[in-house]
Design a protein around this nucleic acid. Structure first.
Lengths: 340, 340
DNA sequence: GCCCGGTATCGAAGCGCTTCGACAACTCGC
DNA sequence: GCGAGTTGTCGAAGCGCTTCGATACCGGGC
């Protein structure tokens, strides 16, 4: 824990010169700068965090609030936490965790104690209680996800409507006229914000393109995932030549397994596209085309916006949608079975 | 962001009196204390974090390092992160996240910048690079998990050997003479520290009690978990009257499913015990007895030890093992099928 | 009535840094 | 060769708190 005066002494300059040399906020002669950097390296000097916060009016910390509800999907959630942390480090920011009941109370605490420069909100619910809180505290706040009432808030998210529309376009372009949609269990459509957006985008674009679309929202209970298997069977036997999946990874695997069990080949007999998945769809057997939800994209944008706000820049209080991207892995083809 | 002098002015006292009243470090007359507390509440006053760190030589922050490797099991991992955060809040401590490559570099950074009062180490590997680091930095460090080389370190973990021994005892007491062990995939026995400990404890106690024990470490690939199903089938057809499971939740569910498919009832035909699971085994169909790995137990102890070290107390540099606990849910019975 | 010990409060120092303003020492144009 | 501007460095103020030592006050013992 070397201190700035030790560095200054070692380099034969005053402490303010050290500070300016290391922060680059004033010009320093190349020679002096070199001596200072060397001394700092030698002493493994890093500015004391508390002193820096106090004097610099910057904590270099973002609070990350994540209630972690019972229905939170752990792997996806972890991916977002990780992506946020990595994005923040690019700006030399650290992440402070606010979990559970502290997810809300902690926001207030962090705001009034000046522990963080901003707040990143994860695991956003449609009727999230942190919405009101965000409006009240005087700290830059960015939502990763879109609550129902987002008036005046800065939100970041994948454009889910556009994502599923992209999947429909791909299938329609290939000539499919009847597609099946396998979604999350029905309860997800109340507790989470994005499943309805995927569904809406899908059905709207399907209607536009004159494609028939059947939606099934199977429960995901039990190791056999019987409801998912039944959904897949009903859809393909009902004439769907393509499947759009928006469900968890196990359900993906089970759906593919069921297609194989039914003797339907992918993509010759049935095309398959995954929408809004956070996991790697290319490692399924067979690999599956997808329009993924990329945690790093959302989190990087969120952090960038938060940084701009911290720096006093203007950030529109709006939903910042991320354009979806289609990733082909060979699981789509024109309809028509044996002839394809 | 009210400041201490505003509270002092509102209560008609000096700022040092406010500080003492709120920290309780010197006696203050009941009347004065009341006025101060009232003023603080009214102004929503909280000491500025940076100032507190600087003046108080306490950051009230623990760094949590978690590399989050590719093979990390997300749900279990999240449970530990959450438990750590909750345990820390009991002492008014916050958790700062150090992920990925920052898991190590961040430890150094946090130590030399005085950003945290201590470090909690998660996701511990047998040959963890954070072991050396922990020895070098001058910050209280507690490992949640046990690396191979733990000389001079403070570690906390479930006593896995005792846990599986407890399961064997239960089954042996009931009269079982042949048990099957379904473990994690083989690679887990190199990358993680505890699977070998479970296995060791199980086999040792089985030998002591004169119980035959067959171990299978099935791969867990594919939605069908065929290797797990095969393992269960082979074990029960090979004469095992009880199964000890130490694997992920899906494999648990699949194992039970397979038993049902084989027409074996639990517990009449086969007894089942889960060892070292972080998930709820009582919600399986049927509910399963377990000797669980309780994240909150490990994390609470880790935080308590870290606090003691921060407070200058003596904490033995040793592995602090947590005694396992048997939780019965009706999945064990004496062997003997129809007669049971 | 005086001294003593305890209790309640205050003022001021200092934690380690950032940043402002000052000021030498130069450079340049004319 | 002199004033104006530029560049590199320094001293000191101050960020908001904790904590030390001092002080004022009070009641009790003699």
């Amino acid at each position: 824990m070397a201190k700035i005066h030790e560095v200054a002494a070692a380099a034969g300059v005053s402490i303010s010169t050290v500070s300016y040399a290391l922060s680059g906020k004033r010009s320093i002669s190349p020679d002096t700068r070199r001596r200072i950097e060397e001394a700092a390296r030698e002493l493994d000097y890093r500015p004391n965090a508390g002193a820096r916060m106090l004097a610099g009016r910057r904590t270099q910390i973002f609070a990350l609030t994540e209630p972690f509800r019972a229905d939170t999907h752990a792997p996806a959630h972890m991916a977002f936490v990780l992506a946020t942390s990595i994005a923040a480090r690019r700006y030399e920011y650290d992440i402070l965790l606010l979990t559970e009941e502290e997810a809300s109370a902690g926001m207030r605490r962090v705001a009034s104690s000046g522990l963080a420069d901003g707040v990143l909100v994860l695991d956003v619910a449609p009727d999230d209680e942190r919405v009101d809180l965000a409006r009240r505290i005087a700290l830059p706040t960015v939502f990763i996800g879109v609550p129902d009432d987002h008036e005046g808030l800065v939100c970041v998210d994948l454009d889910f409507e556009a994502a599923s529309a992209l999947a429909v376009d791909r299938l329609a372009d290939l000539g499919h006229r009847s597609i099946g949609f396998v979604g999350h269990p029905p309860t997800s459509y109340e507790k989470s914000n994005f499943p309805p957006r995927v569904r809406r985008g899908l059905e709207a674009r399907a209607a536009e393109r004159g494609v028939a679309c059947t939606t099934v929202l199977p429960e995901s209970d039990g190791p056999r995932r019987a409801p998912v298997r039944a959904a897949v069977r009903d859809l393909v036997e009902g004439g769907a030549t393509a499947l759009v999946l928006h469900c968890d990874d196990t359900s993906h695997a089970v759906a593919l397994d069921e297609l194989a069990a039914l003797g339907r080949r992918v993509p010759q007999d049935v095309s398959v596209v995954s929408v809004g998945a956070t996991f790697e769809t290319s490692s399924f057997q067979p690999p599956i085309d997808s329009v993924p939800l990329v945690p790093s994209a959302s989190c990087e944008l969120a952090v960038e916006l938060a940084m701009r706000m911290v720096d006093g820049g203007e950030v529109p209080a709006a939903v910042h949608l991320i354009a979806p991207e289609y990733r082909a892995h060979g699981s789509t083809a024109p309809p028509g079975g044996a002839s394809g």
